[in-house]
Structures are given as C-alpha cells and as structure tokens.
Design a protein around this nucleic acid. Structure first.
Lengths: 332, 332
DNA sequence: CTGTTAGCGCTTTCAT
DNA sequence: ATGAAAGCGCTAACAG
C-alpha cells in the first residue's frame, strides 16, 4: 500500500503538503494540489485511517451502541443513522451491549478507545449516573429514547405520555369505557409515562381507572398473552385492551383468539410503536406511531452540528407520536 | 489518559515489558507481571487500540458488512455474530452498504482501512468477480448467503434447493396438486435454487409445473400481494401458494383476504425463512426454517479458526433447511 | 527474561 | 505557501 511518503516523493513536494491537500487545508497552491492529486491517483493511494487517527485523535467515525441488534426498532434506527452519517462523509461503527450493564460499558469503552468522534447510545442497562459522569468526558454523545434531565440537550425522546393519552382517547372516542391496559415493566421510564397518559385520558372522560384492569408485562410477545390470560382469569370485563407496545399487543391478540374471542368484535386492541409487523397482523393493528427514524436522524444531526460543525442544523429533542388507525378496534 | 510509558515508569520496568504483559507474551517473570499489573491498575491505564493497531497492523476486530441493517434476517445474523466475537474477546465493526455496489465497496474499503483482521460479508450488489479478486488481498473474509465456486471454502450458505423441495413436497403430501409459486427475483441465486427444488418435488409427484402459476416477485411484502392478484386475474386455479420468502407470503395472505379467500380453507400458504413475524400472522405461517444464526456463528468460527488460530473448530459451509409446520395449510 | 531502538503512517507546530 | 522535524502510543526485532 502506498504511503504519504511515496506520494510526496512522486509529486516532488513535502510530506506536509500532501497532508494538507489530504485534509483540504486552505493556503495550498492549485499547482501543488494538482501534482499531489496526480501522484495519489497514479499510486492508487488510500490514506491509512488508523495512522491519521493516531496522529490527530479524530476518526471521522461515530460509534453507535445499542442494547440489542435485533428487533424492528433497532433495525430502522440503525439504518437511518448509518445513511445519514454516510451522506455526511462520516462512518458509523455499530456495536451491541446485549442489555447487560457490564457489556454495555465494555462496548462504550471500545468505541471511545477507537477514537470515535462522538457516540450515539441506545442503551437500557447503563445507569443515569454513569451517563452523567460520561458527559464530563471528552467524547461527546447523544442518548436515544431516554430523558435524563441533567443532560437533556443530549437526549432524544418521544412524548410517551402523549402517546398513551392518544391511544386511550381514541378508544374512548370509539365508545369504549372498560379499557384494560397491558404495560411494559413499570421500572422503565417509557412504560410509566405511557401509563400516565392513559390514565389522564380516562380522567378527562370521567372514567375511573381500575387497578384490576392493569397487567404489567415485559414488552415481549409472550407477556401480552399472559396479560390477557390474567385479565380473563380474573373475571374482569373489558371491551378493549391498550398495550404499551406492539409485541405485547400481538401476543394478547393471539391469546384472545385462544379464548375464542373475535377481534375486534368482542375485544379491541391498540398497540404502541407502529412496528412494521403490525400491518401483517390480522386484523391489522391500530397503534401509536413512534417516529423512530426521525429521532435517529435528528440525533445524528446533533452530532453533525456540534461535533462536525455544520452549524445550520436545527435540533429538537422531543418527538410527537400520532395515531395510526387500522382494523383492530370496534366502534360502538 | 495514561500511556504505556507512564506505566513502565511507575512499574520500574521497560516499555517492552509492559507491552509484553499487555500481549500475554510468554517469557515474562511473574514478578514483572505483577508490578506492571499493579501500575496499570493504579493509573487506570487503558491501551490505545489505535496505536496498537498502527504498530501491529492488527486490530482484534472483525468488520461486518451487510447490504441492509433492517429486516428480521439481518438482525438475528448481526446479533449472533456480535455475541460470538465478543465471547472470543474480539469486536465487531458493523457497517452497511445499502444494496448499492458503490456504497458496498466503500463500506468494504472502510473496514479494510480500519485494519480489520477479517471481514464477514452479507452483500448483494458486489459482483462475484470483485470478491474473487478481493480474496487475493491480504484481509481474509467470509461470505454469507452466497456460494461462489472459486472461493467456496469462504462461503456459508443454505441448501436452497432442498428448502424449495421440502416446501413443495409438504404441500403435495397434504393433498395439494395445483400449486402456485411466488418467487424472488430470478436474477438471484437463492431464488432460482428454491424454484428448482420446488419443481423437483413436483416432478417426483408427477405433477406438471405450469408457467402461468409462477409469479416473479422481489422478496418484498407488496410483491406477494401483486403475485396473488396476478394469479387470480389470470383465472388460474390453485389450492396453495408456495412463496420464496415470508415477506411475500404475508403480502399474499393479505391479498387473499382482500379477495375474500379463507386461509387456509380456500388457499393454503407456505413461506420461506421462518422470520420471527411468521408467528404473528394469522393463521400462523407454515414455513421453511433458515438457520440464520447457526450460519452466522459458523462463519465467525471460520474466522476464529483461520485468523485467530483457534484450531480446534470444525467448519461446515452448507446449512440444511427444515419444515416448520403451523396453521396456514389445509389438508385434503 | 529484560531493555534498547526503530519504526507504523500520518498530523502539526514552527520556521522560512 | 511550503518544508523540517517532532511526535501520536504502541509493537517488534535485536541484543544482551
């Protein structure tokens, strides 16, 4: 592989000049620019990114750490980030933490050690405190899907409460009064926020929230099924179930069918996230759209603006969910 | 950040000794090992991976290039690879080529330029020739889901023909005789292989393959719907449709429902891949299981064996599909 | 078993 | 505008 040294020799200029044209410095004469370009081309020169990175402690790459690599959520997120960075001439280095604090921290350190210019984090296990401390460090970063007040400007998140509210409100508008709720783990911020929004809509409509219509799941399909079993075994009555995400809604729908319930005639469903598979379900699931890709793009804009100095970008941190009407809700 | 130099000073040994313990060299006395370890700990030393990489032209990381980051297929693949490498103390650097030859090649060069010790490629757009040429280069790599005879040992792939065969055979065993087929793009190797297997099963059962029961789709959901519309508009008769992947099967099922067809009573379906969402479909889709994760793991084993010298690993290149029976097929 | 000494390929002052 | 020279933090002969 040709080095900068050979280029400089062939072009008849110094190392520094070659380096300058490589880095688009001003104050380089057109003449040397041309000579260097020609030499590079002739040698098929490709800069050694590792050496550049060592010398400059920059890397033109941003690290992306996610807790899991699979699932509909992460796929569209990663895809959006990668594309946006690539369009800006930067690279994404993606790695996973497998929802385990130790591994997530290892992943973080790996990315920092690789001289990433910035980080995009979509992590569960790492604590707020750790992240706050990390924000004092020298690698800038943004956090997706979390809202930590001390570093709010670096956070990009959904108005989950509004989402929960919109879902319940829609159900109420369709004439439902007995509404069950299958939530995610209430230890998680987004779960509790969604539930708060749900309750708010009930209050507004003078409907009393019944604790025995609440089941706390874990965001996975199976817990949706467990949720509806719980509700039915408890002999509660309800005409609709609001679910805190689409996976659980799909599990609950499957469970409903096992109990010979017609959907939506005997039991309506609303999900949350608008994952791609909601269209595959039968009936297609009415849900709350989570603008995952927009959020991912905005977070990379933050980096382009603050780290790569593309000043003109406008940043917003909070995203708004909206209702997607499909066929899983019965109107009364 | 502390450097190796400070560690050596604090430990009272030379640079090389520190480097040696860092790299687990033999012939280092226990005493110096201890001194160095203590110094490292005291300084919170973390090796600079970039500098190591520059000096040694190794990086302990393998590059993974996929054409797309989203979709069920890639998620489980990436997840398996990342985990397997991590368990071996190596890192994955993941990047995407967005199904475009120029971008895929850029991604490839990025990974090579980052001194990746090896590459795992899951790409569509790059030509066989390019890959064959690349195999002459100094960065070893494996290819997933492709079978290029010149470099077969580096390829990991499914017996697609067997998959197509199993699907059709199952349909036939359930009493179907009029079987339509929605294929992927016939320009792609896996599509044609699956179709060949399909035809083979028909021949075995003395059923004649009718050209007007074949629709060439593009592996996306929508083309499944187009496929069934095509078949119905053509006034062909069929009791079952075999689809070349699950996405198209799901689209076709949706289309069938638009035509008021009962599934499976009036039209049976079988998919291919066993994507996670096939369980969400209603009725749940009978399909051919593609052992994606196994294949991904095996490909990283190849790298662990040939690049990182873990000699004991046994490698196989071809993977076998198998039938997953669910509820989308009517028995006659 | 340990230390000395050149680099790896590039960036970046500092002169000129 | 250009060049010389000193690193960036580490590895890897080589010598002892």
């Amino acid at each position: 592989m040709a080095t900068i040294y050979e280029v400089s020799a062939l072009a008849g200029v110094s190392l520094s000049s070659v380096s300058r044209v490589l880095n688009d410095h001003e104050h380089v004469s057109e003449k040397t620019k041309k000579k260097v370009a020609a030499a590079m081309k002739e040698l098929g020169y490709r800069p050694n990114t590792i050496a550049r990175s060592l010398a400059s402690s920059r890397s033109n790459s941003v690290g992306v750490l996610v807790s899991e690599l699979h699932g509909p959520f992460f796929g569209s997120m990663l895809s959006a980030i990668e594309l946006e960075l690539r369009n800006a001439g930067k690279h994404a280095i993606i790695t996973a933490g497998h929802s385990d604090e130790e591994n997530e921290i290892k992943g973080l350190e790996f990315l920092i050690d690789r001289n990433c210019d910035a980080l995009i984090l979509l992590v569960d296990a790492i604590s707020d405190d750790y992240l706050i401390k990390l924000s004092k460090g020298k690698t800038p970063f943004v956090i997706l899907n979390r809202n930590i007040s001390e570093i709010r400007d670096n956070c990009f998140y959904l108005d989950n409460e509004l989402g929960g509210y919109l879902a319940a409100k829609h159900l109420i508008e369709q004439g439902h009064k007995e509404i069950a709720y299958i939530s995610g783990p209430l230890s998680k911020q987004d779960s509790t926020e969604r539930l708060i929004g749900h309750k708010k809509a009930l209050v507004e409509a003078n409907i009393c929230f019944k604790e025995n219509l609440l089941y706390e799941g874990d965001y996975l399909t199976e817990s949706g099924r467990e949720g509806i079993n719980f509700l039915i075994n408890n002999k509660t009555t309800f005409t609709a179930i609001a679910c805190s995400n689409d996976e659980m809604a799909s599990g609950a729908m499957k469970g409903a069918r096992d109990h010979k319930l017609l959907i939506p005639e005997q039991c309506s469903f609303i999900g949350f996230d608008n994952a791609f598979f909601t269209e595959y379900l039968y009936p297609q699931l009415t849900t709350i759209h989570f603008p995952v890709a927009d959020m991912a793009i905005m977070s990379t804009h933050w980096i382009l603006k603050h780290v790569y100095k593309q000043k003109e970008l406008v940043i917003k941190n909070m995203f708004l969910p909206n209702l997607i009407e499909r066929q899983s809700i019965q109107q009364y």
